[in-house]
Amino acid sequence: VSDDVPQLPRLRQARATDEGGRGLYLVNRMARRWGATRLSTGKVVWFELNRG
Rank of each mutant, 00 (worst) to 15 (best):
V1K: 01
V1P: 01
V1L: 11
V1Y: 01
S2F: 09
S2G: 09
S2L: 09
S2V: 05
D3P: 01
D3C: 13
D3H: 10
D4M: 02
D4R: 11
D4L: 03
D4E: 07
V5I: 11
V5N: 13
V5M: 05
P6K: 10
P6Y: 04
Q7L: 12
Q7K: 11
Q7G: 10
P9G: 11
P9T: 10
R10N: 11
R10W: 00
R10Q: 12
L11Q: 06
L11I: 09
L11N: 11
R12T: 15
R12L: 14
Q13W: 05
A14G: 07
A14N: 08
A14P: 15
A14E: 08
R15N: 10
R15Q: 11
A16Y: 04
T17K: 09
T17Q: 13
T17F: 06
T17D: 13
T17S: 10
T17P: 00
D18F: 10
D18C: 03
D18R: 03
D18Q: 03
D18M: 05
E19K: 08
E19M: 10
E19A: 13
G20I: 07
G20N: 10
G20H: 14
G21A: 06
G21M: 06
G21E: 06
G21H: 04
R22T: 06
R22C: 03
R22H: 07
G23H: 01
G23E: 03
G23P: 01
L24E: 10
L24T: 03
Y25G: 07
Y25N: 07
Y25D: 14
L26F: 12
L26P: 00
L26I: 08
V27N: 00
V27I: 15
V27W: 01
V27A: 12
N28R: 11
N28P: 01
R29H: 05
M30I: 07
M30N: 04
A31K: 00
A31W: 01
A31V: 02
A31T: 02
A31R: 00
R32D: 13
R33E: 15
W34L: 06
W34R: 01
W34G: 02
W34E: 00
G35P: 01
G35C: 05
A36E: 02
T37I: 14
R38N: 04
R38W: 05
L39E: 14
S40E: 12
T41L: 07
T41R: 06
T41F: 09
G42I: 09
G42H: 08
G42L: 09
K43I: 08
V44I: 15
V44H: 07
V45L: 13
W46E: 12
W46M: 05
F47D: 02
F47L: 15
F47E: 02
E48Q: 11
E48N: 05
E48H: 05
E48A: 09
L49T: 13
L49G: 09
N50K: 04
R51S: 10
R51K: 13
R51T: 08
R51Q: 12
R51N: 07
G52W: 12
